[in-house]
């Protein structure tokens, strides 16, 4: 295994991580371009399998999901997950996209990391992405009557938004 020293601790290099992870699921896209971390893009149908393997495999052991970001890339909606291992201290970024803007649906990961419960509700609230098997998927910040999803790029609110 390729190792490098960070803060006097041996961590897997991005290359070693990529070799290991690509052996689990074939159709993953890896890139380090424009980011300080290794980025994986995964198809929605493989998301849950990849995530549970990233957490449970002892070599990767990504047990700390520290950031869940909803994204609107224009044509596609999606989520960016930032993962860290508290034992190995390596960081990885997982991206998932869905082209369906009318009814975007992804699998939940809150059975893997409990923190995903609130984070996915926030993403649902602001981007309208639904999460399969989420135990309590409802709006978190906005009221239930709120129409639309404010952090989408095509959201319009002439009264409350100041456009420069």
């Amino acid at each position: 295994m390729d190792l490098m020293k960070v803060n006097n601790r041996a961590v897997m290099t991005n290359e070693a991580l990529q070799n290991l992870i690509s052996s689990w699921i074939p159709e993953l896209e890896f890139t380090e371009e424009g980011s300080q971390f290794l980025n994986i893009t995964v198809q929605p149908e493989n998301l849950h399998q990849l995530m549970s393997e990233l957490k449970s495999n002892s070599e990767t052991n990504f047990d700390y999901l520290f950031c869940v970001t909803g994204m609107d890339w224009g044509s596609a909606l999606g989520v960016i997950y930032h993962l860290e291992s508290t034992t190995h201290r390596h960081i990885i970024v997982v991206k998932v996209k869905t082209e369906d803007r009318e009814n975007p649906t992804l699998d939940t990961v809150c059975d893997i990391w409990k923190t995903a419960d609130f984070h996915e509700r926030e993403v649902f609230d602001f981007f309208g992405i639904k999460f399969n098997n989420h135990p309590n998927l409802k709006r978190l910040f906005l009221t239930d009557e709120w129409e639309g999803f404010p952090l989408r790029k095509d959201y319009v609110d002439e009264i409350n938004m100041i456009i420069k």
């Binding site: 047990d63 700390y64 999901l65 520290f66 508290t86 990391w113 409990k114 923190t115």
Partner: peptide, 9 residues
């Protein structure tokens, strides 16, 4: 374990 899983910091 729960602290890590809940993303406590």
């Amino acid at each position: 374990e729960d602290a890590i899983s809940f993303g406590a910091s």
